[in-house]
Amino acid sequence: MTVIDTVTATAARAPVRLRLVTLDRLRSAALPIGFAAAVLLLWQVAVDIGGYPKVILPAPSDIASALAANFSEICRQAVPTTRDTLAGFCIAAVLGIGLASLLTVNRLLRDAIYPLVIVIQLVPKIAWTPLFIVWAGIGWPSRLTIATFIAFFPIFMAMLAGLESTDGSLVRLCRALTATPWRTFWLVRFPASMPYLFSGLKIGITLSVIGVVVAEFISSSEGLGFFILKSAALLQTDVILAAILVLCLVGLASFGLVHLGELAVRRWRGD
């Protein structure tokens, strides 16, 4: 086989593989979208034929027109919800990573604090919400506090698990190489814990959204949670569902941000 033969053979094969990859990607996107479309269609038909009252079960078309009619209002309400979610998450991430790092480096602090964190973690975090409102008022500070509080635990626990699961032989190697504990932490423990951290961050961002919406339910005059509750009082089921749809997009976008962060960290680590 000559060089030219090989080159032609490779060139002929490449587009086929490329086409297969595109087809594969298309399939993985088309399947869920198609399925969702089928469900929506079935829903629409069922409501049209069954004639359920719109207040109980609005059709997808009703939700779409409710979204269109209230679009600017819903977007306006989505701003504080998104802002508090992201801010609460960021504070929780800094606190969670910081405390987990501190407890890994200092044995005494770990033994003193870790059991207490577990005890607090066992109480359903949502139960604290009214207390935070008493302490921080009904404005954004209490919503931020709740989001931080609820997102903190999974981030902290995941980071601590990641730092403690570091391969002992790598740590021993660092010791043999006369690395200081701080350098060992920065070169080995911290990068090794990244996969754990990001699984914690992904749970954290999801819980942060929940925390903010619950806080808006309880006491607030703005945000999607407040808007949903107000629409429920007016029995505007289609508007509620339109707001939930936007809330869904907010959650998805925040999750996407964490995912982007994961990709960036992987690049930094050199994966």
């Binding site: 032989s169 790598l170 021993r172 190697l173 043999a176 006369t178 990068p191 680590r269 050199g270």
Partner: peptide
């Protein structure tokens, strides 16, 4: 440990990333 000693363990102990 001294910085002038080279060491090899039973496993290669490489940073996987």
């Amino acid at each position: 440990p001294r910085a002038e000693t080279g060491i090899m363990f039973q496993d290669p102990t490489l940073l996987p990333w």
